[in-house]
Design a protein around this nucleic acid. Structure first.
Lengths: 266, 266
DNA sequence: ACGAGGGCTGAACAAGCGTTTAGCATACTG
DNA sequence: CAGTATGCTAAACGCTTGTTCAGCCCTCGT
C-alpha cells in the first residue's frame, strides 16, 4: 500500500495528504516513488527511447509495431490467458500480420518473455506501486490509473494465480518492498511490531493481492457497477480490520498458543 | 474458517476443541458440518450410489470409468488449466480411450460442466468447509485432508482467479455462508460488529481465499518445505491481525473518514 | 540513380487439437 | 438362445494452431 512509506512522511493528523486517500488496501506493497501517482502517460504511447546499452538480445529500438504487438499481447494475455490467446488475435489487435509477431519475437513464448521482461522493468521502476499498493486513491485518480494499468494488473493477477515464474518474480519483489515498508511503519510507531516480519509481510501481501484478484467477485456479489465502487465499498472494512482487528478479545490466539505449546512439550 | 460457527458452540476457555486447532485462516467460510474433519474417504474411491432420482441429463450410474475420467479431469484441469489439458491426456490418466471421454460427456466442455457440477455438489454438502475454511487443523489431519482435497482446491483456485461462472458460483455460496457465520459470531459477542455485514463478509472471503491462492508464493519466498509448514507459519500472523489489527491507532481510519465526509458535503 | 537491407506480408505447412465414425465385445432382456 | 442395448475402442477427419518461406515495399547510404 505504500502506507508505511507515507506513514513516516506524513503527519498522522487531520487532513489526508495531497495524492489521495490514505492507503487502505491489504498489502504493504511496492515503493511509492515520489510522483508515481502523477499524470500517467497515455497507454498506447510508444515507449521511451529505452537506451540500447542494456540490450540483451534483439532489443534494438522498440517503438511502433513492436511495442504495439507487445501491448496487445499484454492485454489479451490478461483477458484470455496465454493459451487462450492466438498469435493471429494479437496480430489483428496490433494491426499487423501474424508473421510479423514471430519475426519480432521469435515465437509466441518469446513474445511472452518480452511482455514479462517489460512488465518486470516497469515494476522495478516502481510504476506499479500505486496500483498494487493503494487500491483506493479515491475517485478520478483511481479511474485514470485503472485505465492505464488494468490490463497489466489482469495479466499480473493471472500470473500470480497460476504460480508461474513471472508471477513469482513479481511476488518476491513486492515482498521485499513490503518487508522494508512494514519495518519503516513499525519504526515510526504506527504499525504493530511482529515476531516474524518476513512472514507477516508475506501474509499481508497475500491478503492484499488476493483481495485485488478477487475484487471482481466482490463486485458482482454485492451488485456493484464498477471496480471503483467495489474498492470504495471495501475500503472502510479493510480499515476496520487493520484498526480494530476482527475478534473482540484474544481467546482464539490464546487457544492457538495453548495448543502449540502443549504440542511442543510433548 | 468456520470460526464463527465454532465460536458459538465451543467454550472460549483454555483447551481447543477436539477437531483441531482454532481456525485461523482468513475467511469465515463454509459451514463446518459436524464431522466434516473426520476420516476423509480415500481419494479415488468410487462415488456413493448417488441416487438417480435427481438425474438431470445422462447422470445414470456414475462409477468406474466415468468417475475416473471426471476425477482425472479435475486434477489435470487444476494442474494445467482447462486449455492446457488435452482430452487425450485425460483419457490416458483415466486409462481409457479419448473417444470414451466424449462418449460419456458429449464434449470437453461437457466434461468441465460435469466436473463443476460435481464439485458444486460437494461444496453444497459442506465437504469443503474444512479446506476452504480452516487451513490449519494442525498436522496429520491437515495432511490427510490435503491429499484428498488439494486437486479440487487447485481447480477451485484457478476457477476463482479466472472469474468464470464456476468460480463465481462457488464464491456466492461461500459468501452466503460467511454472512451467516459472521452474524452468528457477532451475536455470540466474539466478533466485532460491522456497519456493512455483506461487504465485510466479501472482504474477509477475499482475504482468506486470496491468502489460500497465493500460499504457494509465500511458501517459496520464505523457503518452506511444504504447504503445511507455510500454513503453520502463517497462522499466528493471521491471529495477530484478527486479534489486534495492524495499526497502533486509528489515525488512518480517521483520515479516511475525514476525506469522505468532506467529499460528501461538497 | 541504384543496390542493399530491414520492416512487413500472404500463403502455405506440419502438428496437435476436439470430435466423429464404424465397429467390437460384453451383459442384460425377451 | 436371439436380440439389443451398453461400454468401449482404433482410426480417421476437419479445423485451428504456431510457425516457415519466398518475396514485396520502402527507406537509406553511396
Amino acid at each position: 500500500m505504500s502506507s508505511a512509506a507515507r506513514i513516516s512522511s506524513s503527519p498522522p493528523s487531520g487532513a489526508p495528504d495531497v495524492d489521495g486517500a490514505p492507503d487502505v488496501d491489504g498489502a504493504p506493497a511496492a515503493p511509492a516513488a515520489p510522483g508515481a501517482l502523477e499524470t500517467p502517460s497515455t497507454a498506447d504511447a510508444p515507449d521511451a527511447p529505452e537506451t540500447p546499452s542494456t540490450a540483451e538480445v534483439g532489443d534494438t529500438d522498440d517503438r511502433t509495431a513492436r511495442a504495439r504487438i507487445r501491448d496487445a499481447a499484454l492485454r489479451l494475455f490478461g483477458e484470455d490467458g496465454f493459451d487462450g490467446t492466438t498469435v493471429r488475435a494479437i496480430a489483428e489487435a496490433a494491426d499487423v500480420s501474424p508473421a510479423l509477431v514471430v519475426h519480432h519475437f521469435g515465437s509466441k513464448s518469446g513474445l511472452r518473455d518480452a511482455v514479462d521482461e517489460h512488465l518486470l522493468a516497469k515494476i522495478a521502476e516502481g510504476k506499479f506501486a500505486a496500483m498494487t499498493g493503494s487500491l483506493v486513491p479515491s475517485g478520478d485518480e483511481y479511474a485514470d490509473l485503472a485505465a492505464e494499468y488494468v490490463p497489466a494488473m489482469a495479466y499480473l493477477a493471472r500470473s500470480l494465480a497460476e504460480g508461474g515464474d513471472v508471477g513469482h518474480a513479481l511476488y518476491q519483489r513486492l515482498h521485499a518492498d513490503a518487508v522494508a515498508y512494514l519495518a519503516a511503519g513499525v519504526e515510526a510507531g504506527v504499525l504493530e511490531p511482529s515476531d516474524d516480519p518476513e512472514a507477516r509481510a508475506a501474509v499481508l501481501l497475500n491478503v492484499g493481492l488476493g483481495h485485488m484478484i478477487l475484487m471482481a467477485h466482490l463486485q458482482r456479489t454485492l451488485g456493484l457497477d464498477d471496480d471503483v465502487a467495489a474498492a470504495v465499498r471495501a475500503a472502510p472494512i479493510m480499515l476496520d480490520l487493520y484498526t480494530d482487528g476482527l475478534f473482540t478479545d484474544d481467546r482464539f490466539r490464546a487457544a492457538w498458543r495453548a495448543q502449540t505449546d502443549t504440542k511442543a512439550t510433548q
